[in-house]
Design a protein around this nucleic acid. Sequence first.
DNA 1: GCCAACGTTGGC
DNA 2: GCCAACGTTGGC
Length: 175
Amino acid sequence: MSPAAHDDGPWAWVFTPRRPNEKRYWLVKSEPNVFSFDDLRAAPKQTTQWDGVRNFAARNFLRDGMKRGDQVFFYHSSTNPQAIVGIAQVAREAYPDPTALDKKHPAFDAKSDPKDPSWYAVDLEAVAPLAKPVTLTEIKANKALAEMALVRIGRLSVTPVRSAEWDAIVAMSKR
DNA sequence: GCCAACGTTGGC
DNA sequence: GCCAACGTTGGC
């Protein structure tokens, strides 16, 4: 991986070096009937392996962008209403996704070389639910969030969040 | 290397 | 359930 690999695009900044103690922000999506924020809170140590990402852009955010301690919005997709429902954090940085390397697993990828794996996972730990979920409708109605990756590249399951966007959404989540 | 066909995601 | 967006695949 050359340093120039992520130079293109509006999200290149998420791969740049950080100031000391700089924290960055992310958003992950999950269908709540598959794995909900409550499921995360009920998991051992309120932590789970965030695996199964099979999109290269999402993989890059997850593998090269996410650092331990980064804060992560947990978004419920394909449900009514779609909304950010909680906050998690990166408990373990990227490691090869075991589900991609396990022949018996439905998410096994035969094209991924075990010596140079294509796919990565992180561990996410629940921090707290939002007092009030922030819906996609509310996000789209807020002009300050018009450039948010969630809005601009809606299909991606892992997206960066700017600190100003993070703060705006946290404010929207207060009762 | 182009591009049509196909598959997936996820909002509506 | 439909379909827009877009990534992947494969024929040429």
